[in-house]
Amino acid sequence: MEKTIDIGQYVAIAVKWLMANLRPLFDFIKTTGNAGIESIEWVLVSVPFYITIALFTAVAWKYAGKRIATFTLLGLALIYLMGFWEETMQTLALIISSTVIALIVAVPLGIWSAKSQTAQRIIRPLLDLMQTMPAFVYLIPAVLFFSIGKLPGAFATIIFAMPPAVRLTALGIQQVPGDVLEAARSLGATQKQILFKVELPLALKTLLTGVNQTILLSLSMVVIAGMIAAGGLGEKVLEGINNLDIGLGFESGLSVVILAIILDRITQAFGNKGLN
């Protein structure tokens, strides 16, 4: 069928306009962003593997218990022994930076949409769009704005991973019981005091679930971001696909799974302990 409505054309025009007019801004973001990601990566890669493993195991032990700690120890050791340590650390660096930035944007958005009907009406459909749009699509503007590399990878990841954090922050704040809010107001609390002393602490558990979701979505996206030379495990997975190397594909995929489980269990444990 012939194309009668061409929305794509206008999107392309908008993106082109942005590229032409905001070039210096994108360049600036790219340089600083890359520097940030690379410094995190440098730290993670240059710390000896056994220290990193020990650290992760200790955190898992403290917050998530013996079983998860054992899994963390064995899992990370396996990754190291399979020869994917550096790639895993690169991926981790990308996840950390994407998650941090996603949260910096998502938490205020979540608070805003919990407090204002108008904000909610604008933000909700945007989140729906961001979550349902096929993840690969984000790679296109990322590359157009920032060309290839780690920062566009992080950019696509942030967009893809942010929605649950916004939603769960909003949910957490909306779930704060009315009587608690009323009590705080009756004692003369200001809006700011209510937010920081009542709403955020009470929303913490839900908010941490959002953090957990964001981390896991970041992880799935950074693999896809391997397609635009974001490096890390994604690139190894892609290499396996391109060469039809089932062994490489499985090993790098397994590393992703191990990393995912460790991050998930530890952040979940944080979430459960949030209130105690």
């Binding site: 608690v180 809010l181 009323e182 009590a183 009756s186 004692l187 003369g188 602490p201």
Partner: peptide, 21 residues
Amino acid sequence: LLDVRRTEMSMVFQKFGLLPH
């Protein structure tokens, strides 16, 4: 008004309204 609430009047609620954390 905040001052009035902070010094002159306090309120007690049916569902207590305590901070669980």
